[in-house]
Amino acid sequence: MNADLLRGYTDAIILSQLVNQDSYGYRIQKDVSDKTAGGLNFKEATLYTAFRRLEQAGLIVSYWGGEQQGARRRYYSITETGKAKLQEEQNQWMETRYILEKLLMDRAEQERSIVYE
């Protein structure tokens, strides 16, 4: 997979995990990993750098969970601005995907290159 491309969507991916319910670090890592069958595994550093960035930009807010024992979970919640940003990123992805598919996945082109191998 293209690590650079995915890295550019880190913020959008995190926002997408918060759109339906609030979540926290490990839960987001786990969900993303499960949903992509291990394809994308966020490191703590990636997540928390992104959380900081997203919170400073007003796209998410955070709060402590009420856990009684041990370390508490830091929950994150998407704001209206965050939802708008996610929408923007989704649109951008559709455009990108369209362009690449059109160029890289053209059937006629593929068949010709196979013949020449």
Partner: peptide, 17 residues
């Protein structure tokens, strides 16, 4: 301090699971 606690929790949960 906040980040450390949140990260600690993530790591504990990962380990426990």
């Amino acid at each position: 301090r906040d980040m450390k606690e949140a990260v600690l929790r993530d790591c504990q949960e990962r380990f426990d699971e």
